[in-house]
Amino acid sequence: MSAVDTKHPARRPTDGMLALAKDIAEGRQRDSIGTSTVPAHVYTDPDYWAREKAAIYDRLPQILCPSALLPDPGMAVPHDATGRPLLITRDAQGAAHVFLNVCRHRGTRLVEGSEVQCTKKLVCPYHAWTYAVDGRLLALPRPDTFPGLDKDAYGLVELPSLETGGLIWFSPETQGADFAQAEMLGEDFDALGMGEHVLFRRKTHRVAGNWKLIMDAFLESYHVTRLHAKTIGPFFKDGATSGDMIGPHARSAVGRLEEMEGVDLEKMADLRRVVTFAYQLLPGALIIPSPDYINVMVMMPQAHDLTLVEDFMLIPEHPSSDKARDHWERSWALLDGGVFAGEDFRAAELGQQGLATGAVPHLTLGTMEGGIRRYHETVEEALRAAN
Protein backbone atom coordinates (compact mmCIF):
# COMPACT_ATOMS: atom_id res chain seq x y z
CA MET A 1 0.00 0.00 0.00
CA SER A 2 2.23 2.78 -1.25
CA ALA A 3 0.63 6.11 -0.47
CA VAL A 4 3.32 7.73 -2.58
CA ASP A 5 1.65 6.44 -5.75
CA THR A 6 -1.80 7.79 -5.03
CA LYS A 7 -0.95 11.18 -3.55
CA HIS A 8 1.84 12.29 -5.89
CA PRO A 9 1.79 10.19 -9.06
CA ALA A 10 3.71 12.87 -11.01
CA ARG A 11 6.51 13.44 -8.51
CA ARG A 12 9.92 13.08 -10.20
CA PRO A 13 13.44 12.45 -8.85
CA THR A 14 16.19 15.05 -9.05
CA ASP A 15 18.89 14.67 -11.68
CA GLY A 16 21.31 13.43 -9.02
CA MET A 17 18.94 10.73 -7.78
CA LEU A 18 18.22 9.62 -11.32
CA ALA A 19 21.94 9.42 -12.17
CA LEU A 20 22.56 7.00 -9.28
CA ALA A 21 19.60 4.84 -10.31
CA LYS A 22 20.88 4.68 -13.89
CA ASP A 23 24.34 3.73 -12.61
CA ILE A 24 22.80 0.70 -10.94
CA ALA A 25 20.58 -0.25 -13.86
CA GLU A 26 23.45 0.05 -16.36
CA GLY A 27 26.10 -1.61 -14.19
CA ARG A 28 28.36 1.39 -13.61
CA GLN A 29 30.45 1.44 -10.45
CA ARG A 30 31.44 4.84 -9.05
CA ASP A 31 33.41 3.51 -6.10
CA SER A 32 36.91 2.80 -7.37
CA ILE A 33 38.47 2.69 -3.91
CA GLY A 34 40.28 -0.59 -3.25
CA THR A 35 41.01 -2.04 0.17
CA SER A 36 41.60 0.73 2.71
CA THR A 37 41.82 1.25 6.45
CA VAL A 38 40.49 3.52 9.19
CA PRO A 39 42.48 3.86 12.45
CA ALA A 40 40.67 2.43 15.45
CA HIS A 41 41.52 5.37 17.71
CA VAL A 42 39.01 7.65 15.93
CA TYR A 43 36.29 5.63 17.67
CA THR A 44 37.93 5.09 21.06
CA ASP A 45 40.03 8.17 21.88
CA PRO A 46 38.21 10.70 24.12
CA ASP A 47 40.60 13.46 22.99
CA TYR A 48 39.79 12.80 19.34
CA TRP A 49 36.10 13.00 20.19
CA ALA A 50 36.67 16.34 21.97
CA ARG A 51 38.25 17.68 18.76
CA GLU A 52 35.28 16.43 16.73
CA LYS A 53 32.82 18.09 19.07
CA ALA A 54 34.61 21.44 18.91
CA ALA A 55 35.25 21.39 15.16
CA ILE A 56 32.06 19.75 13.93
CA TYR A 57 29.19 19.59 16.39
CA ASP A 58 29.89 23.00 17.91
CA ARG A 59 30.45 24.67 14.55
CA LEU A 60 28.63 23.16 11.55
CA PRO A 61 24.95 23.47 10.58
CA GLN A 62 23.08 20.33 11.59
CA ILE A 63 19.61 18.80 11.51
CA LEU A 64 17.49 19.00 14.65
CA CYS A 65 14.24 17.38 13.54
CA PRO A 66 11.82 16.94 10.66
CA SER A 67 9.32 19.73 10.00
CA ALA A 68 6.58 17.22 10.81
CA LEU A 69 7.48 17.37 14.52
CA LEU A 70 5.95 20.88 14.57
CA PRO A 71 3.19 20.68 11.96
CA ASP A 72 1.09 23.66 13.06
CA PRO A 73 1.60 27.31 14.07
CA GLY A 74 1.86 27.91 17.80
CA MET A 75 3.98 24.88 18.67
CA ALA A 76 7.23 24.53 20.65
CA VAL A 77 9.50 21.68 21.70
CA PRO A 78 12.62 21.75 23.93
CA HIS A 79 15.76 20.06 22.62
CA ASP A 80 18.72 19.42 24.92
CA ALA A 81 20.77 16.67 23.33
CA THR A 82 23.13 18.92 21.34
CA GLY A 83 24.72 20.02 24.61
CA ARG A 84 22.91 23.35 24.72
CA PRO A 85 19.29 24.07 25.81
CA LEU A 86 17.37 24.74 22.61
CA LEU A 87 13.75 25.55 21.93
CA ILE A 88 12.32 24.87 18.46
CA THR A 89 9.11 26.76 17.67
CA ARG A 90 6.71 27.47 14.84
CA ASP A 91 5.24 30.97 14.90
CA ALA A 92 1.78 32.21 13.91
CA GLN A 93 2.91 32.68 10.30
CA GLY A 94 4.24 29.10 10.14
CA ALA A 95 7.95 29.97 10.25
CA ALA A 96 10.29 27.76 12.28
CA HIS A 97 12.72 29.25 14.82
CA VAL A 98 15.49 27.88 17.03
CA PHE A 99 16.05 29.76 20.30
CA LEU A 100 18.10 29.19 23.40
CA ASN A 101 15.60 27.84 25.92
CA VAL A 102 16.54 30.51 28.45
CA CYS A 103 14.48 33.36 29.94
CA ARG A 104 16.15 36.73 29.42
CA HIS A 105 15.33 37.84 32.96
CA ARG A 106 17.36 35.56 35.23
CA GLY A 107 18.47 32.80 32.85
CA THR A 108 15.85 30.28 33.97
CA ARG A 109 15.02 27.36 31.69
CA LEU A 110 11.87 28.53 29.94
CA VAL A 111 10.15 25.32 28.80
CA GLU A 112 10.59 21.99 30.60
CA GLY A 113 10.36 18.43 29.32
CA SER A 114 10.93 17.08 25.83
CA GLU A 115 7.44 16.87 24.35
CA VAL A 116 5.84 19.16 21.81
CA GLN A 117 3.63 21.85 23.31
CA CYS A 118 0.78 23.64 21.59
CA THR A 119 0.82 27.20 22.85
CA LYS A 120 0.87 30.78 21.64
CA LYS A 121 2.75 31.97 24.73
CA LEU A 122 5.81 30.76 26.60
CA VAL A 123 5.71 31.64 30.29
CA CYS A 124 8.79 31.45 32.50
CA PRO A 125 7.99 29.28 35.56
CA TYR A 126 10.04 31.53 37.86
CA HIS A 127 8.74 35.09 37.41
CA ALA A 128 6.21 34.64 34.59
CA TRP A 129 7.99 36.67 31.95
CA THR A 130 5.97 35.83 28.86
CA TYR A 131 7.21 35.35 25.29
CA ALA A 132 5.57 34.71 21.94
CA VAL A 133 6.64 31.64 19.96
CA ASP A 134 8.41 34.04 17.58
CA GLY A 135 10.67 35.03 20.49
CA ARG A 136 9.25 38.45 21.36
CA LEU A 137 8.94 39.41 25.01
CA LEU A 138 5.22 40.08 25.38
CA ALA A 139 4.80 40.93 29.04
CA LEU A 140 6.30 40.79 32.51
CA PRO A 141 4.75 41.20 35.95
CA ARG A 142 5.17 44.60 37.60
CA PRO A 143 6.85 46.31 34.64
CA ASP A 144 7.05 49.44 36.81
CA THR A 145 9.86 47.74 38.76
CA PHE A 146 12.00 47.66 35.60
CA PRO A 147 12.14 51.34 34.69
CA GLY A 148 13.48 51.98 31.22
CA LEU A 149 13.45 48.33 30.15
CA ASP A 150 12.99 47.99 26.39
CA LYS A 151 10.96 44.83 25.77
CA ASP A 152 12.12 44.74 22.14
CA ALA A 153 15.68 44.22 23.38
CA TYR A 154 14.75 41.30 25.61
CA GLY A 155 13.45 38.74 23.15
CA LEU A 156 14.71 35.17 23.26
CA VAL A 157 18.20 34.58 21.89
CA GLU A 158 17.75 33.14 18.39
CA LEU A 159 20.25 30.93 16.61
CA PRO A 160 20.57 30.76 12.80
CA SER A 161 18.23 28.16 11.34
CA LEU A 162 16.79 26.97 8.06
CA GLU A 163 13.76 24.89 7.17
CA THR A 164 14.10 23.15 3.83
CA GLY A 165 12.98 19.88 2.30
CA GLY A 166 10.95 18.98 5.39
CA LEU A 167 13.85 19.35 7.83
CA ILE A 168 14.76 22.00 10.42
CA TRP A 169 18.48 22.80 10.59
CA PHE A 170 20.32 25.08 13.00
CA SER A 171 23.81 26.48 13.34
CA PRO A 172 25.56 26.58 16.73
CA GLU A 173 27.65 29.47 15.38
CA THR A 174 25.74 32.74 15.39
CA GLN A 175 27.92 34.41 12.76
CA GLY A 176 28.55 33.29 9.20
CA ALA A 177 26.24 30.27 9.19
CA ASP A 178 26.25 28.69 5.72
CA PHE A 179 23.18 26.63 4.81
CA ALA A 180 23.95 26.35 1.08
CA GLN A 181 24.56 22.59 1.23
CA ALA A 182 21.39 22.07 3.26
CA GLU A 183 19.42 23.86 0.55
CA MET A 184 20.94 21.59 -2.10
CA LEU A 185 19.90 18.53 -0.11
CA GLY A 186 16.45 20.07 0.26
CA GLU A 187 15.90 19.60 -3.48
CA ASP A 188 16.15 15.81 -3.09
CA PHE A 189 13.94 15.83 -0.01
CA ASP A 190 11.35 17.97 -1.78
CA ALA A 191 11.37 15.41 -4.59
CA LEU A 192 10.64 12.76 -1.97
CA GLY A 193 7.80 14.90 -0.61
CA MET A 194 9.27 14.84 2.90
CA GLY A 195 7.88 18.26 3.80
CA GLU A 196 4.36 16.98 3.18
CA HIS A 197 4.74 13.87 5.33
CA VAL A 198 3.35 13.60 8.86
CA LEU A 199 4.99 12.20 11.97
CA PHE A 200 3.90 8.70 12.92
CA ARG A 201 6.42 7.73 15.61
CA ARG A 202 9.39 9.30 17.41
CA LYS A 203 11.86 7.55 19.71
CA THR A 204 15.28 8.32 21.17
CA HIS A 205 17.77 5.43 21.45
CA ARG A 206 20.73 5.39 23.82
CA VAL A 207 23.55 3.61 21.99
CA ALA A 208 26.76 2.69 23.83
CA GLY A 209 28.91 3.30 20.79
CA ASN A 210 30.80 6.01 18.92
CA TRP A 211 28.60 8.08 16.62
CA LYS A 212 30.69 7.16 13.57
CA LEU A 213 30.19 3.44 14.17
CA ILE A 214 26.47 4.06 13.78
CA MET A 215 27.02 6.09 10.64
CA ASP A 216 29.31 3.37 9.24
CA ALA A 217 26.46 0.88 9.13
CA PHE A 218 24.58 3.12 6.71
CA LEU A 219 27.60 3.83 4.51
CA GLU A 220 28.07 0.32 3.12
CA SER A 221 25.93 -2.51 1.80
CA TYR A 222 28.34 -5.32 2.72
CA HIS A 223 26.50 -6.10 5.95
CA VAL A 224 22.94 -5.95 4.67
CA THR A 225 22.39 -9.57 3.65
CA ARG A 226 24.35 -10.82 6.68
CA LEU A 227 23.44 -8.70 9.70
CA HIS A 228 19.86 -8.33 8.44
CA ALA A 229 19.50 -11.90 7.17
CA LYS A 230 16.29 -12.47 9.15
CA THR A 231 14.71 -9.06 8.54
CA ILE A 232 15.31 -6.91 5.44
CA GLY A 233 18.33 -8.76 4.01
CA PRO A 234 16.33 -10.93 1.61
CA PHE A 235 15.14 -7.79 -0.21
CA PHE A 236 18.70 -6.83 -1.23
CA LYS A 237 21.59 -8.30 -3.17
CA ASP A 238 25.31 -7.53 -3.01
CA GLY A 239 26.94 -5.16 -5.47
CA ALA A 240 24.01 -3.19 -6.96
CA THR A 241 25.01 0.12 -5.41
CA SER A 242 26.10 3.61 -6.36
CA GLY A 243 26.83 6.82 -4.47
CA ASP A 244 28.04 10.39 -4.70
CA MET A 245 28.59 13.47 -2.56
CA ILE A 246 26.61 16.68 -2.10
CA GLY A 247 29.26 18.86 -0.51
CA PRO A 248 30.27 17.01 2.68
CA HIS A 249 27.11 14.88 2.61
CA ALA A 250 26.91 11.39 1.10
CA ARG A 251 24.05 10.11 -1.05
CA SER A 252 23.87 6.40 -1.81
CA ALA A 253 21.52 4.04 -3.60
CA VAL A 254 20.96 0.28 -3.47
CA GLY A 255 18.97 -1.28 -6.31
CA ARG A 256 17.12 -4.54 -6.85
CA LEU A 257 18.42 -5.33 -10.34
CA GLU A 258 16.03 -8.22 -10.93
CA GLU A 259 13.10 -5.81 -10.56
CA MET A 260 14.47 -2.79 -12.44
CA GLU A 261 13.95 -3.93 -16.02
CA GLY A 262 11.16 -1.96 -17.69
CA VAL A 263 10.72 0.43 -14.74
CA ASP A 264 10.35 4.13 -15.57
CA LEU A 265 13.06 5.50 -13.31
CA GLU A 266 11.87 9.07 -13.86
CA LYS A 267 8.67 8.34 -11.93
CA MET A 268 9.45 8.70 -8.25
CA ALA A 269 6.89 6.17 -7.04
CA ASP A 270 8.23 3.50 -9.43
CA LEU A 271 11.85 4.39 -8.65
CA ARG A 272 11.37 4.04 -4.90
CA ARG A 273 9.98 0.53 -5.32
CA VAL A 274 13.24 -0.73 -6.87
CA VAL A 275 15.92 1.62 -5.50
CA THR A 276 16.49 2.46 -1.83
CA PHE A 277 18.24 5.78 -1.31
CA ALA A 278 20.09 6.75 1.84
CA TYR A 279 21.57 10.09 2.88
CA GLN A 280 24.45 10.20 5.33
CA LEU A 281 24.84 13.80 6.43
CA LEU A 282 27.63 15.56 8.27
CA PRO A 283 27.79 15.92 11.24
CA GLY A 284 25.60 12.88 11.91
CA ALA A 285 22.16 12.39 10.43
CA LEU A 286 20.61 9.68 8.30
CA ILE A 287 17.66 9.94 5.92
CA ILE A 288 16.33 6.55 4.80
CA PRO A 289 13.38 6.69 2.37
CA SER A 290 11.60 3.34 2.15
CA PRO A 291 9.11 2.78 -0.67
CA ASP A 292 6.23 4.38 1.24
CA TYR A 293 7.67 6.14 4.32
CA ILE A 294 10.82 7.94 5.47
CA ASN A 295 13.03 7.48 8.51
CA VAL A 296 15.00 10.47 9.81
CA MET A 297 17.68 9.59 12.36
CA VAL A 298 19.72 12.26 14.11
CA MET A 299 22.99 11.38 15.90
CA MET A 300 23.67 13.39 19.06
CA PRO A 301 26.98 12.22 20.53
CA GLN A 302 27.31 12.57 24.30
CA ALA A 303 30.81 11.06 24.63
CA HIS A 304 33.28 9.10 22.52
CA ASP A 305 31.38 5.91 23.40
CA LEU A 306 27.81 7.13 23.88
CA THR A 307 25.37 8.44 21.28
CA LEU A 308 21.72 9.43 21.43
CA VAL A 309 19.88 8.62 18.20
CA GLU A 310 16.48 10.21 17.70
CA ASP A 311 14.46 8.30 15.11
CA PHE A 312 11.43 9.83 13.39
CA MET A 313 9.12 7.80 11.15
CA LEU A 314 7.33 9.98 8.59
CA ILE A 315 4.37 8.73 6.55
CA PRO A 316 2.49 10.38 3.66
CA GLU A 317 -0.73 11.01 5.60
CA HIS A 318 -2.36 10.23 8.93
CA PRO A 319 -3.80 6.69 9.03
CA SER A 320 -7.41 6.73 7.88
CA SER A 321 -8.33 3.28 9.19
CA ASP A 322 -7.27 0.62 11.68
CA LYS A 323 -5.86 -1.39 8.77
CA ALA A 324 -3.66 1.51 7.71
CA ARG A 325 -2.50 2.10 11.27
CA ASP A 326 -1.62 -1.58 11.67
CA HIS A 327 0.43 -1.40 8.47
CA TRP A 328 2.51 1.51 9.77
CA GLU A 329 2.86 -0.06 13.22
CA ARG A 330 4.32 -3.20 11.65
CA SER A 331 6.75 -1.11 9.59
CA TRP A 332 7.81 0.83 12.71
CA ALA A 333 8.29 -2.37 14.71
CA LEU A 334 10.35 -3.97 11.93
CA LEU A 335 12.76 -1.08 11.47
CA ASP A 336 12.96 0.91 14.70
CA GLY A 337 12.62 -2.00 17.08
CA GLY A 338 14.23 -4.68 14.93
CA VAL A 339 16.55 -3.60 12.12
CA PHE A 340 17.88 -0.36 13.61
CA ALA A 341 17.86 -0.96 17.36
CA GLY A 342 18.26 -4.73 17.38
CA GLU A 343 20.78 -5.01 14.55
CA ASP A 344 22.52 -1.80 13.37
CA PHE A 345 22.77 -0.08 16.76
CA ARG A 346 23.67 -3.36 18.47
CA ALA A 347 26.44 -3.92 15.93
CA ALA A 348 27.81 -0.45 16.77
CA GLU A 349 27.85 -1.35 20.48
CA LEU A 350 29.62 -4.64 19.80
CA GLY A 351 32.12 -2.79 17.61
CA GLN A 352 32.82 -0.30 20.41
CA GLN A 353 33.38 -3.13 22.87
CA GLY A 354 35.81 -4.87 20.55
CA LEU A 355 37.76 -1.79 19.49
CA ALA A 356 38.12 -0.66 23.11
CA THR A 357 40.33 -3.70 23.78
CA GLY A 358 42.99 -2.40 21.39
CA ALA A 359 43.15 -5.77 19.63
CA VAL A 360 42.44 -4.20 16.24
CA PRO A 361 44.67 -1.20 15.42
CA HIS A 362 42.68 -0.29 12.33
CA LEU A 363 39.50 -1.28 10.51
CA THR A 364 40.00 -2.97 7.15
CA LEU A 365 37.53 -1.89 4.47
CA GLY A 366 36.72 -3.69 1.24
CA THR A 367 35.43 -2.32 -2.04
CA MET A 368 31.81 -2.45 -0.83
CA GLU A 369 32.75 -0.23 2.13
CA GLY A 370 34.26 2.73 0.29
CA GLY A 371 31.57 5.04 1.65
CA ILE A 372 33.03 4.66 5.13
CA ARG A 373 36.48 5.77 3.95
CA ARG A 374 34.97 8.81 2.21
CA TYR A 375 32.97 9.77 5.28
CA HIS A 376 36.02 9.59 7.53
CA GLU A 377 37.97 11.71 5.06
CA THR A 378 35.16 14.28 5.28
CA VAL A 379 35.38 14.27 9.09
CA GLU A 380 39.15 14.68 8.94
CA GLU A 381 38.79 17.56 6.49
CA ALA A 382 36.37 19.30 8.88
CA LEU A 383 38.90 18.88 11.70
CA ARG A 384 41.65 20.44 9.59
CA ALA A 385 39.40 23.33 8.54
CA ALA A 386 38.77 24.23 12.18
CA ASN A 387 42.48 24.50 13.06
Rank of each mutant, 00 (worst) to 15 (best):
A217N: 14
E173A: 10
A250T: 03
M194S: 06
R256Q: 13
D152E: 15
K237T: 12
L265N: 10
K151W: 01
G165A: 11
V254Q: 13
F235Q: 13
F236S: 03
H249T: 05
L137T: 02
D188P: 00
L185N: 02
P248N: 07
R272E: 12
D144W: 10
R206Q: 10
T174S: 10
T204K: 09
D190Q: 09
A208I: 04
E258A: 15
P160K: 06
H205I: 08
T231D: 04
L137M: 08
L199Q: 09
H249Q: 02
A269Y: 01
K212F: 05
G243R: 11
G165D: 07
V263A: 06
L149R: 12
F170L: 11
L156C: 07
G176Q: 13
L185Y: 12
E259C: 09
A182M: 06
V254D: 06
F200G: 02
G155I: 00
G239N: 07
D134S: 08
A250V: 11
L156G: 03
R272N: 12
A139D: 12
V133Q: 03
E158Y: 08
Y131M: 03
M215Y: 01
A253P: 04
G243V: 06
T225Y: 03
E158M: 08
T145F: 04
T225K: 07
D270A: 11
L149K: 14
G148Y: 14
F236V: 03
A229M: 09
A240K: 04
P141F: 13
F235L: 15
E196M: 05
R142E: 10
F189W: 13
H249K: 00
E173Y: 10
D270H: 04
H197T: 07
E259G: 05
A139C: 13
D216R: 06
S171G: 04
L162W: 09
A229K: 14
F218N: 06
L137A: 03
R201E: 15
P172Y: 07
G165M: 09
I232Y: 01
M268A: 09
G193R: 00
E187C: 10
G195A: 02
E183S: 06
R142G: 04
F179H: 06
H197Y: 11
M215A: 15
L149N: 11
F189H: 08
M245T: 10
Y222P: 01
I246C: 13
M184D: 08
V274S: 07
P172T: 07
A180S: 12
K151P: 07
L162A: 09
L149W: 13
R142W: 11
Q175T: 14
A253H: 06
H249D: 10
H249L: 09
F218T: 02
V133Y: 01
E183P: 05
S161I: 00
V198I: 08
K230Q: 12
V198F: 02
E261S: 14
G135D: 07
K267L: 11
V224G: 01
G195Y: 08
V207T: 06
L167Y: 00
A229R: 14
N210F: 04
P172Q: 05
L271W: 02
A182D: 03
G247F: 00
Y154S: 13
D178G: 05
T241K: 03
F236L: 07
L185M: 14
S171E: 06
H223W: 04
E220I: 04
G255E: 01
E220M: 07
L265D: 08
T174C: 11
R273E: 13
D244A: 12
V275A: 04
